[in-house]
Amino acid sequence: MQTFAALLDALVYAPQRNTKLALIENWLRTTPDPDRGWGLAALTGQLAFPHAKPALIRALVGSRVDPVLFALSYDFVGDLAETAALIWPAPAAGAGPTAPSLRHRHAVSTRSPHSLGQAGGRGAFGRCVVRLDCPMKPKFNPNRPINTSRWVE
């Protein structure tokens, strides 16, 4: 889902509808399944994240980062989720650069929230939250019509 994270960033910065459409089209063309399906589900609002509340994010990052450095960083960045994503510690050497695939979500979801993301790299945070939630809320129905318009306004 690294490329999906990059796509979301690009969509945030792109001002024009045609640019957004070209970016989404390119991503759908070049991304293998099952990531493509998960990305499509996320883009069309089919995934729910009831557990990813600010308090949880704060607790997860608070158990990993010096509180003074976190406070100074949050002050500078101004957004809790962005601060957490940027300050998330790098994996220990040898832990491997990629987070486990979404295929493994059932195994991962049985771990406590505080152990999530220990093996992942920076940016793994968002993916962990997705994993935490998905098995409990299988809302994504591939047969349901989707509405992409809110992403390309």
């Binding site: 910065y13 792109a14 640019t19």
Partner: peptide, 15 residues
């Protein structure tokens, strides 16, 4: 450009 708000302030499309 690491900080999203900084990039958006500058109207940058590709930080």
């Amino acid at each position: 450009m690491r900080i999203r708000q900084r990039a958006r302030q500058r109207g940058v499309e590709l930080p």
